[in-house]
Simulated assay, not measured.
Amino acid sequence: MKPKNKNSRTATIMGIMTTCTVLILSVVAVVYFIKYITYSNRYEDTNDAQIESFINPVSARAGGFIKNVLFEEHQKVEKGDTLVILDDREYAQKVKEAEAMLEDTKAQQEILAASINSAQASTLINQDQIKVAKATLWQQEQDVKRFKNLLNEDAVTVADYEQVKTRYDVAENSYNATVNGLKTGHMKVNELQAKYSSLFAAKKRAEALLDLAKLNMSYTVITSPYSGYTGRKNILEGQQVQAGQPLVSIVNTHDKWIIANFKETQVNGMYVGQTVEIEVDAIGNKIFKGKIEAISASTGSKFSLLPADNSTGNFVKIIQRIPVKIKFAPDQDTDVLKAGMNVKVRVKAKN
């Protein structure tokens, strides 16, 4: 009989323990369910979110052979740091050629300026010659009138009158020649001034070519557009690159944000400036603060390369995701955060 009583007590104890365990598990389940319901009523969250940052591919603006590569993979660089130097000998020759063209244009301008001054001086001489020729013509005209009167009175011979008349004709032609010479001088000055203006334009063009040659030469030194970290190193010294060819990517570590893709049923009540709590998968037990900076005006599927066409008849209703841009609050240590890290964001739901 004693063994039977012992087994009965053991069974009773096991039953009580089982009942307690079930009760404890039920209480725990109820507590977690209540917490879940309370959390769901207070917050909207998603783990479909990643840290984003500007990743700028630095491209060559000039072609040539690489002379020096001054960076390593994943190296920290500051804005303006030299990354790559190209062989600039061809570009230096272009600069010298443009400088020579500019100097030649300046020399031609100086020659033309001297020619213009000489032509203008010649016109002054022509003006004085006109005055002399005009005075001579007037004198000869008076002699012709006087000898004509004397001829009418038979005081001189016809030969004497003809000699005076010939001298008058010579003086008149000389006067006309000096007048035409002055006109020719003015035309020569105008022609030289037009050539000078043309050379002035040529000088401007030579200056522009020189500036362009210097600009192209400056492209042989490739610098970092902003501070950050370099990406993979895929170039070596001696390699030939073309204009527009990407050389290395720079990750801007000073400007980071999060793109969180919330379900369309979650964004109701969200607004720009709303506070957000951020948990980073790679960093435990730390909550980052942020604010909603922008809410997309369209679902993510509408930005896809081949958006779905529901009018084809193959419609299956799928909850869409709406991208929300979240900016980190200032005065936080975000240096440890890397672009592409997965995060979980939590937004207080609208009451």
Rank of each mutant, 00 (worst) to 15 (best):
G290K: 01
I292D: 01
E293L: 05
I295M: 08
I295Y: 04
S296R: 00
S296G: 14
A297E: 10
A297Y: 11
S298Q: 08
T299C: 03
T299R: 06
G300H: 07
G300N: 13
G300A: 14
G300Y: 14
K302N: 15
F303A: 11
F303S: 02
S304V: 09
L305N: 04
L305K: 01
L306R: 05
L306I: 14
L306A: 05
L306E: 08
L306P: 00
P307F: 06
A308C: 05
A308I: 14
A308E: 15
N310F: 02
N310S: 04
N310I: 09
S311N: 13
S311F: 06
T312N: 15
T312H: 09
G313L: 11
N314K: 14
F315K: 09
V316G: 00
V316S: 14
K317V: 09
I318S: 09
I319Y: 11
I319N: 12
I319E: 15
Q320A: 06
Q320K: 11
P323L: 04
P323D: 11
P323E: 10
K325S: 06
K325I: 09
I326C: 04
K327T: 14
K327G: 02
F328D: 02
F328P: 00
A329D: 06
P330L: 10
D331P: 00
Q332R: 14
Q332L: 08
D333N: 15
D333Y: 07
T334N: 13
T334S: 06
D335A: 13
D335C: 00
V336N: 12
